[in-house]
Write a protein that binds this DNA or RNA. Structure first.
Lengths: 208, 208
DNA sequence: CGCCAATTTGACTGTGCTCAAGTAATGTGG
DNA sequence: CCACATTACTTGAGCACAGTCAAATTGGCG
């Protein structure tokens, strides 16, 4: 483990910086140590669409952004540990298990994308917003308060809703007492259980 | 290439058979030679939701179905060439390039899932149906007539629409003369260009 | 021919989008 | 430090698109 960490290089990004994803020494894979990354994909209309976020302690799919033609941008001060392809291959030849771990990593990313497909496919606006908040909360490690340094428009792209609908749903959750928002970008989850029931993922209620 | 094919085992499935995806000699990766596979994922409610299709000459993500908890089912007579994990590792040690090809394969699957996220996120019903038909048509190799042996309800799950809306949109395309449907499951694409313009993916029109 | 399932069509309804106005937060220059 | 400008967010009214429910039609099969 130590030997692995020594081979990785740590890079620091300020808010809004774009990670170079091409070239020989481009990051082949990486781990976000702090801060977060946003993954945007250009649309055929020349716009750009937010597809996913990578929070601290989550991994970057190897070159996923290149193949998927995505752009990785830091959100806030972000620290990323990366490893180029040659280095990874050196490590993998020493530790064969790494090759498989890498595969699992990207497979989990695929599974995550499919989860989100379910969300976008047949969930209502309130279910989508609740699902998103639960997902973020869990991935942050269930903190008292989360910082989501992104606009309502960004959250709308993630959930397939308009910024107005996102705002309305979040306000509704606040009025219902499930969350608190001291600032628009700061969210406290007050009732995680009730929030989870609104996701639409709650298992069918068992008859008493 | 020949040596690769010799190592793979060819399996034949009848319509509706489920592919075993667990166990030591379960398919680690595979290629659909003919027919097609559907990838369903169980929902938290105990239902099942169609997420993706794999047509002939397309590859199966290595164990993707296991990690993603998906079920692979044959649609119609289907021939699949598979390879278990041990066999693949033997091959890969002989041909190092395979390891990278495998990675690319699953990365492409991820890119495809993200494409679909864009479709589900912010497209209208007619754009979704047009996009789906264009995608299927291209992946089938642009044949005169496609056979889509699946119900409107299945197409609805793929596109995040109801079966009624799918039916209405397909009928509208037929009345507009862009496609023909001699049978509900047989689709002829008459005007691929016009169909593509309805996908919402058409590049912004250039001023004359 | 009759049955059954899938598809199509219709009428109505509701959710979420659009457009628009108002409010809160943030930054800037004097 | 405050007035101002700017951007983001919130809220409201109206409407359209797609969902729901229900009925009619089609095609397949014994």
């Amino acid at each position: 483990m130590r030997s692995i960490q020594r081979k990785f290089t740590t890079e620091n990004y300020r808010d809004g910086e774009t990670l170079a994803c091409k070239g020989v020494d481009a990051p082949f894979m990486g781990i976000v140590r702090s801060g977060m990354l946003r993954e945007d994909r250009p649309t055929p209309q020349g716009r750009t669409h937010l597809l996913a976020l990578t929070f601290a302690n989550e991994a970057l799919a190897p070159q996923g952004c290149v193949r998927a033609k995505c752009t990785l941008t830091s959100v806030g001060e972000t620290e990323v540990m990366t490893c180029d392809q040659r280095t990874f291959e050196e490590l993998a030849s020493a530790i064969p298990r790494l090759q498989l771990n890498l595969l699992h990593l990207i497979q989990d990313q695929l599974a995550q994308a499919q989860d989100w497909q379910l969300l976008l496919g047949r969930k209502t606006a309130s279910e989508r917003v609740a699902s998103m908040l639960v997902s973020f909360h869990q991935r942050h490690g269930r903190p008292d308060e989360m910082h989501l340094p992104m606009s309502r428009a960004d959250l709308g792209q993630l959930t397939g809703l308009t910024l107005e609908t996102v705002s309305r749903q979040m306000r509704a959750l606040e009025k219902a007492g499930l969350i608190a928002m001291p600032l628009p970008t700061r969210v406290r989850v007050l009732d995680a259980v009730a929030l989870h029931e609104l996701t639409g993922d709650a298992p069918a209620r068992v008859a008493a």
